[in-house]
């Protein structure tokens, strides 16, 4: 890792389907630029993209934050939105509260949070009804840049 201490922040607007994915794309490009292992980039990109889609599909607005440390990467997705009523249920593959529009776009199949969990090494979710949700995902990198 060449750039410990780097922090990047990206705004995400709820309902802005045209821009959905831009923040994750920028995160991916930034990681490629600083020479992160391709397998790690893939995991981060998938998790960040799912998190961004969740904000676009469910929340009013939010942001994605990438933090680069010596031995790990962290992606934080926080939003102002309805919150997740039952996190355990939302973590189950196939459970979704997404709209028909989300499904038309190929999302809303109940794989978002499970995908984020699968791709990250640790994930924590804090959510408050009618306030919003904060998801913190950590991705380990060993000395060789391989997880």
């Amino acid at each position: 890792m060449t750039t410990p201490g780097m922090v990047l922040r990206f705004s995400v607007e709820g309902g802005d389907y045209a821009a959905a994915g831009e923040a994750a794309s920028k995160i991916k490009k930034a990681l490629r630029k600083i020479g992160v292992d391709a397998g790690v980039i893939r995991r981060v990109a998938i998790a960040a993209y799912e998190a961004e889609m969740n904000i676009v599909l469910h929340a009013l607005r939010g942001r994605l934050i990438l933090e680069v440390a010596e031995d790990k990467l962290r992606v934080i997705a926080e939003d102002e939105g309805p919150g997740i009523p039952d996190v355990n249920l939302a973590m189950q593959e196939g459970f979704s509260t997404a709209s028909d529009l989300a499904r038309e776009m190929g999302f809303g199949a109940g794989m978002g949070l499970p995908n984020m969990k699968k791709c990250s090494d640790t994930i924590t979710i804090e959510t408050t009804k009618d306030r919003g949700t904060k998801v913190v995902m950590n991705f380990d990198i060993d000395d060789d840049g391989v997880t």
Binding site: Y49, M105, G106, F107, A109, G110, M111, G112, N115
Partner: peptide, 9 residues
């Protein structure tokens, strides 16, 4: 697939 989350996974 038509499910992008499945494609990602």
């Amino acid at each position: 697939s038509d499910l992008m989350s499945d494609v990602l996974a």
